[in-house]
Design a protein around this nucleic acid. Structure first.
Lengths: 222, 222
DNA sequence: GCTTTACTTCGATGGGTATCGAATCATGCC
DNA sequence: GGCATGATTCGATACCCATCGAAGTAAAGC
């Protein structure tokens, strides 16, 4: 009679090793089994068993490339749950004191699956709203004509974005700022443009982004 | 360096007993410790330990009333995570075959924290969209003037709803229908009106709702 | 006052599972 | 073909934690 389905999925996220792997994949990239084993600081067999459970449960997808197996997050719902769980966790005085050098960069700007998050992500959304390029009504986000013009000028192909089955703009709860940043197809497209323009740069590992002065200006001038 | 915070919260949802209690509280009501123990089919001490962990972690809130302790879900984020986890779980062929007599009613109409969910909830949202009382754009929901008029006529006090810090309309992923139903302050207000008009009725326990013929007509005539 | 009900704390038991070492399979390189 | 690397399977170990019984607090009713 009860609904233990919820518990089954939650149990997959409840293990520290698996959670660390998930968090490492939250930047949307695909990583190999050994990379994930190193990230979670466990042996290869342990990581293999975890990854097998996550893929057979549908939380991750795996593709073989030569002798490598690349794992990535299966869909946006999984990323969304992970981010929301982090937001809930950030609400409490977490048992482990939350400090650290890399932590500051992470709170400043990071990738959330495929869009910009962190302090800069929240600023971006607020800037777009203040400039009238996005409008919020009843807690929902829409793209007014001024925003469409801005997108085209910025080099975003709105037509193809609208063709995708994915929602154009969505709010995503930021776990560090506890406020919403821009998600959805538009959020992904803006990050993509910022990356190709060199305003933000991915690091060799981790979700943190390096922001150039031009990138800071871009967000603040909105 | 890793982020086990996520794992800590997920571990709270990972236990079948705790998950069953959470699911029982998803109707937004407050239940006593013994009621929850009975729902999860565990002894009183076991339930007490679970409830203590859930409250100190901030997932539940507790108020004392005489010799009773009433527990309820702490905030909308917790309810949202639980519903999304159920949706992810419903995506897989769950290990336990999902059948049962009460299951059908649950899929038909139920309470999701404080708004209508299930088949009827999805129909309601679709009806509101088709009638032009709600509009969807870029995957976001807004209330056009026609919808405002409809709300007033329906007896919903929009001014106070807008005053609350809660978003007016939101989409919530329905775990059984795998589509979105209406959440947010407006979703809660509509369910409240439907309850006072007698179109739906809560049962003594469980999330399932009894729908009157007038309630069915109301949704289908939209 | 005593009794009943509601809930918690404590201690002991048991089951599930994360972990790793050794061995095995698979792929690519030389 | 043979060696090195990436990844999985298997078996054994150890640990965490859910569970319950018994005893202890708290509140309500009589």
């Amino acid at each position: 009679m009860p609904q233990p389905d919820l518990a089954n999925i939650a149990a997959l996220l409840a293990d520290p090793s698996r959670a660390t792997m998930l968090a490492a994949l939250m930047d949307g990239r695909a990583l190999t089994a050994t990379e994930l084993a190193a990230t979670a600081q466990v042996s290869a067999p342990t990581a293999s068993s975890h990854l097998a459970r996550l893929t057979t449960s549908g939380l991750l997808t795996m593709i073989k490339q030569g002798r490598h197996r690349y794992f990535r997050i299966a869909n946006e719902a999984v990323a969304h749950v992970a981010e929301t769980l982090m937001a809930i966790a950030a609400g409490h005085p977490s048992p482990a004191p939350r400090t650290g050098p890399s932590d500051k960069a992470l709170r400043r700007a990071r990738v959330c699956y495929d869009h910009l998050a962190g302090e800069l992500g929240v600023q971006l959304l607020n800037g777009l709203l203040a400039a009238g390029y996005l409008s919020e009504r009843d807690g929902a986000l829409t793209l007014p004509p001024a925003g469409e013009r801005w997108c085209i000028e910025f080099g975003i192909d709105l037509a193809t974005l609208r063709h995708s089955r994915r929602p154009l703009c969505r709010g995503c709860l930021d776990w560090s700022e506890r406020r919403t940043h821009l998600s959805g197809a538009l959020g992904a497209a803006i990050l993509e443009r910022m990356l190709t323009r060199g305003w933000v740069r991915r690091q060799s590992q981790g979700r943190a982004l390096v922001v150039s002065p031009a990138g800071v200006r871009f967000v603040q001038q909105l």
